[in-house]
Amino acid sequence: MNKTHALTIIQKIKSRPLIGGIIITAFYFFGILGILSESKDWFIEKTAFNLSLSFLILVFYQKNYSLSLLWGFLFCYLIGFTAEYLGVNFGLIFGDYIYPETLGLQLGGVPMIIGINWFLITFCVAAIIFPLKLNIMLKIFIATLLTVLIDFLIEPVAMELNFWNWETNEIPIQNYVGWAIISFLIYSFYAIIKLPLENKISLVLLIWQIIFFACLNLFLVS
């Protein structure tokens, strides 16, 4: 297979977002079933892989690649990771919690994949909210609120699956305030740099993230 033929195949796949949607649907759907099955531990161990795959598919189906996209990713990753580092090591921003080894390779007690997770959520939310014909500050506020609501779904499941653990085994209000602050800063930066948000897979990915945590809240969390 020569380079031209390979590029043609890639372009054909990229022009068919249904393929990416099917892959995401399969991974999240069977992820739900797997975590609710006797093979729970095996599926939980694959969480970092699933997040990495979701990120690669999201980037693959991005319409425009630019420095703004790169800067947006780097800012989101760094501010998200830094906030988590301050939380884990000093109890700042989110509260007192720790990360076990469930989410893979760590730096300073924080999984390297966690910055990717911040980008997946905020990019997908921004891709849905920012195109609306509203005042930019209202868009940022709505995106921030939606992100915090998503975290309400994530937190109980994360504790149940041992993604992270709170010192008192209770989710503090400080955590949600922290999520609101960090999300607001990220969305504000996205708005300033005019992050390119045309992506054929972002809505599907966001919907499945919500379905995933909503289902596990319903059937797994006691």
Rank of each mutant, 00 (worst) to 15 (best):
Y61S: 11
Y61K: 05
K63D: 15
K63F: 13
K63I: 14
Y65M: 14
Y65E: 12
L70P: 02
L70Q: 05
L70S: 12
G72N: 13
G72Y: 02
L74A: 15
F75N: 00
F75K: 02
C76P: 06
L78C: 13
L78P: 01
I79R: 05
I79E: 01
I79S: 09
G80M: 07
G80L: 09
G80W: 10
T82P: 00
A83T: 02
Y85H: 05
Y85V: 01
Y85A: 07
L86G: 02
G87W: 00
G87N: 03
F90K: 14
G91F: 10
I93G: 00
I93F: 00
I93V: 15
F94M: 02
G95D: 11
G95L: 05
D96K: 14
D96I: 06
Y97S: 08
I98G: 04
I98L: 11
Y99E: 03
Y99Q: 01
Y99N: 11
P100W: 12
E101G: 06
E101P: 00
E101V: 05
T102Q: 07
L103M: 13
L103E: 11
G104N: 06
G104F: 08
L105C: 01
Q106Y: 02
G109N: 11
G109Y: 10
V110G: 09
I113K: 05
I114D: 09
I114H: 10
G115T: 03
I116K: 07
N117W: 06
N117K: 09
N117E: 05
W118F: 11
F119D: 08
L120I: 14
I121Y: 08
I121N: 04
I121R: 00
T122K: 00
F123T: 00
F123K: 09
C124R: 06
V125F: 10
A126C: 10
A126Y: 07
A127R: 11
I129A: 05
I129S: 04
F130I: 06
P131M: 08
P131R: 10
P131D: 05
L132T: 07
L132I: 12
K133R: 13
L134I: 04
N135G: 01
I136A: 06
M137H: 12
M137C: 04
